[in-house]
Amino acid sequence: MSPAATPALQVDDLALSFGGVKALDKVSFGVAPGNIHALIGPNGAGKSTCFNVICGVYRADRGAVRLGGNDVTGMHPHQLAGKGLGRSFQNLALSMHSTVLDNVMLARHCRTRGGFMAAGARWPSMMSEQAKHTARAVEICEFLGIERLLHAPVGGLSYGDAKRVDIARALATEPEVLLLDEPAAGMNAGETAEVAELIKVVRDALEISILLVEHDMTLVMGVADRITVLDFGKVVADGTPAEVRNDPEVIRAYLGEQE
């Protein structure tokens, strides 16, 4: 990583309080292009808050979020999707009655056009655009190994497959930066290892940057190139897994939680 390269994602001096409680306080870090970056911390450290600020769900009181050099502070989530920010969901948040393909195709919404009349009248330009995007969605599903499930309703899938659909959907927005919200939540060791492998494959094949918010230490230590540790809304450490592992602040933050 050359120090001159613009970070794929940069947060600067974020601050956000909820009724006097500082959920985020002067949080800054950057995700280098092509890196897998993890954001960790004990419960209530502000990981999710930070994640939600980046996604546009919360608005920070102060500070900035930059995506590949563009200032995206305060943008709505749906605008960010078009700016190259994709995200997965901890609770999957899929449409259970819809098919896998339908779920993945939703992510092409901001890349396609056409409203009710065009769609209703099956306007040729819209149909051909749709066919093109369907092909891409199928390709992404093949990449994630769920192509045999394209027409199955998501409601009937195993958790692992549903997680893949969730990631496929995030990738179908063609992100520069992929945010993963606790991808290993609710998984056993075997499944977690699979997810770790998947994250690496995604990064290597698509050459995108990944920001991971995660609880599971084995996953984080195994895949992350760089780790930012939050505690009480502040960055307490930022470095490689090896550096972070031995950082006294981090150890204190985690041991403190166990008391």
Binding site: C55, G82, F89, L94, L106, H109, C110, A119, Q130
Partner: peptide
């Protein structure tokens, strides 16, 4: 026609989970 393509997908997404729909554009 609408149900089976872009507008319909957006409708169902909004129905099933607004925050997911929004995050997907």
């Amino acid at each position: 026609g609408a149900v089976r393509s872009r507008p319909g997908r957006a409708w169902r997404a909004v129905r099933d989970n607004e925050s997911a729909a929004s995050a997907l554009g």
